[in-house]
């Protein structure tokens, strides 16, 4: 039996369905309430999902940012590995509520969850 699940998002927004699908899966976990904790961790290109400047209307796609906001609205936690994001885009603003963390903290978060699924 598992009480916690971490959704690890490694893919960037919009080129693939993966990041959106991962966010929806995490949201489903929060809504169902069957597990104590369902959190999201953005790493690698997945950190780009945190950028506030996203404009998915430009490609007529659903918003990954809104998908993450929905999780935050339900008191879910969304973490973003800061060095991965900064390496890619420098000092750009991220969605309020997303917690910027180091790799050491990311490892602690992984260890604190029983299940990990990757997108």
């Amino acid at each position: 039996m598992a009480e916690s699940m971490l959704v690890l998002i490694t893919r960037p927004p919009y080129g693939l369905e993966e990041a959106f699908a991962g966010a929806r899966l995490a949201l489903g976990g929060k809504v169902s309430g069957v597990m104590d904790e369902t959190s999201v961790l953005l790493i690698g290109d997945g950190t780009l999902n945190a950028l506030e400047a996203q404009n998915p209307a430009a490609v007529a796609m659903p918003s990954n940012l809104e998908a993450l906001q929905d999780i935050l609205d339900l008191d879910g936690q969304v973490f973003c590995v800061e060095p991965d994001l900064r390496e890619r885009v420098g000092d750009m603003k991220v969605l309020d509520g997303i917690k910027m963390i180091s790799w050491d903290e990311a490892r602690e978060i992984v260890n604190a969850h029983q299940l990990v699924t990757t997108f």
């Binding site: 039996m1 598992a2 489903g28 597990m35 299940l115 990757t118």
Partner: peptide, 21 residues
């Protein structure tokens, strides 16, 4: 079925979760 009801339940009932993708 449903992501919210079925997958969440399956994950909660699991000892291990393997993602194949």
């Amino acid at each position: 079925g449903s992501l919210t009801n079925d997958f969440s339940r399956m994950a909660a009932e699991a000892d291990r979760l393997v993602t194949i993708a």
